[in-house]
Design a protein around this nucleic acid. Structure first.
Lengths: 349, 349
DNA sequence: CTGTTAGCGCTTTCAT
DNA sequence: ATGAAAGCGCTAACAG
């Protein structure tokens, strides 16, 4: 037996079709699906059965139009290739899986105008919520956030760039911890490598500066920044020029593991001994940090947890729950591996 | 002057509101937006102006419901962290940018059941098209594809696993080229490293086997495979065990650059000279392949172009265009860098 | 070029 | 526990 709707082509089965087949009204079928408790057991089984047989799939557009809300969470990303982001997304997805929510990603390409456009596009679809994952100049987005009529959560950074809720870590503190770590290992003339316009690179820089100043070791020429997306190759290029201009440096704090990996390769090429003569610290603790040669010391950012929490907030709010705080600080951890182990390396030498 | 709709909260401005404000009918506003040519200049300017002032944003759900199609392209991904995929996505986005289409990503986590569920979820939204980016066991998806009522394009692999259109490369041929390359450089007992259930790993394996057999060098114990997602760390682990069990191997063909990078690190750790004593070939030509030490020989896959083409097909079809072929083979290129340069390394030594 | 009439498929509200 | 009526915001089809 084959079911076909009258309107050929797509063979779309509607709620009506199921209703007729089951001998009930459309609304009952609708309820059987969304509020099973409100339909008698017998009827519900019968309906669910028919739905299965006929291959009925709810039209989400119609549902959204009628109910005034779509059960999806919009996720605004600055890039799809940013390796640090994928764990955040895994966290978001982990929280969403098993619920009726869906996720819709959107890529802003580090472009502030795109951010506005896409946040607006999301808002137009009345999503359950929007998660802004590590984007930048969001200053003028406040009005959109207000109009969005849904929760807006920004992540990776625990500082609030606009109205809404933030979940992330304190990047300045993290950079300070990393800087102190290198100092504790005996490095004295190490620089900080960064790139991109992300607000967080400035935060980390300021953390580094503050600690170096306190230690009386601050030197402006140790701050290296370039306007480019982070990449392994960029790390190689930046460190090469840095060392050429400042042959006396004894290490570098990288604002991302990618940069650090490039530095590792370049130091191999240059024949520089790590960690004895040169210390390298990364940022993020990506999967590969444990496999590099030597293994990379870095700052672990709880990226999965951040994503999970962000999604959790949206879902909680969507279900009528309450969120008391507006800022969630998820903490970080300095992971001491080999690239900064000058003391032990020296001791064992 | 401030415009507010009657229905407070979200402050939603509708087509009707704009129509009233401008003194025209709703449909005219609708046309001014979608088919500007069909509205007189004077009126159009006036309407567009009002739209701007009132902050009107079309309700995409209503639009989709009324028109029977959403201007979005669904993209099914097996993972969000797969580095080889991000270039494909860039290609898709590049083609889509500037058009009225939007992209919706969905992550299947290498789970065949998720593939079915999500493809179905997409179909329910009547998208302009679906791009399946490098997924796996799609055999039983044919019915869904048929019901989808929209173009379904599968990528990265030019072999057709189901009805629809495919754009990608011939992975078997690519692996054969890589194998021949290593042979030409004098490597004789090199293995092939792979992981995951993707159909393509089997294709590449078979390409490797074929060439090795022809050369009379085939040895089953040189085929290494593991059921795990690709990662740098995995490459390290796999090669370590491989070399332990077969100390005589003189190289390895990796089914991904990540694996190859892990192999590079491990050979550094083991003190193995690359490329003199051990050749390494990657697959994909990711950004970092040029920066490793030594730089990685690999097979370049035109990932950006593949994504671009896939999106182009969907859009062309969506606009009533015609696509004659069902398979688009985008070609590959063996990129000879340092990790397989045994001949020149030997010559210059 | 502009407007009128319907209706997309579903959910809301209010009855029963 | 079930149903009838109304309408979400927009566009297709047909008029004029």
């Amino acid at each position: 037996m084959s079911y076909r709707s009258k309107r050929g082509a797509s063979g779309k089965v509607t709620l009506q079709d199921v209703a007729k087949e089951t001998g009930v009204s459309a609304i009952t079928v609708s309820r059987a699906l969304r509020e099973p408790g409100k339909v008698s057991n017998a009827l519900r089984d019968q309906i669910l059965n028919a739905i299965e047989n006929m291959g009925y799939v709810p039209d989400l557009n119609a549902r959204a139009l009628a109910s005034g809300t779509s059960a999806f969470i919009g996720v605004l990303l600055p890039s799809l290739s940013h390796p640090a982001l994928s764990a955040v997304l895994s966290g978001i997805e982990a929280r969403v899986r098993g619920t009726d929510y869906r996720i819709q990603y959107s890529n802003t390409h580090y472009d502030p105008e795109e951010e506005v456009k896409q946040l607006r596009a999301f808002a137009a679809q009345r999503p359950a919520g929007v998660i802004v994952a590590g984007t930048e100049r969001l200053e003028n987005l406040n009005t959109i956030v207000k109009e969005a009529g849904c929760p807006v959560v920004q992540t990776i950074d625990s500082s609030l760039k606009m109205d809404g809720i933030a979940v992330g870590i304190d990047h300045k503190q993290a950079a300070m911890a990393a800087t102190r770590h290198m100092l504790s290992q005996g490095y004295r003339r190490f620089g900080i490598l960064g790139c991109g316009h992300d607000i967080r690179v400035r935060l980390r820089q300021s953390g580094y500066c503050e600690v170096m100043q306190q230690a009386g070791l601050f030197d402006e020429s140790l701050i290296i920044w370039q306007d480019a997306p982070p990449s392994i190759h960029l790390g190689s290029r930046m460190i090469r020029r840095f060392i050429e201009s400042r042959p006396d440096v004894d290490g570098v704090l990288c604002q991302s593991d990618d940069l650090a990996l490039g530095v590792i390769f370049e130091s191999q090429r240059l024949g520089i001994r790590v960690p004895e003569d040169f210390g390298i610290c990364g940022y993020n603790d990506l999967d590969y940090a444990v496999s590099t040669e030597p293994p990379l010391s870095t700052v672990r950012v709880p990226r999965f947890d951040i994503g999970y929490k962000a999604a959790d907030i949206v879902i909680t709010l969507g279900q009528g729950g309450l969120i008391k705080e507006r800022i969630f600080n998820m903490g970080f951890e300095m992971v001491d591996r080999q690239t900064t182990r000058r003391l032990k390396a020296a001791a064992s030498a």
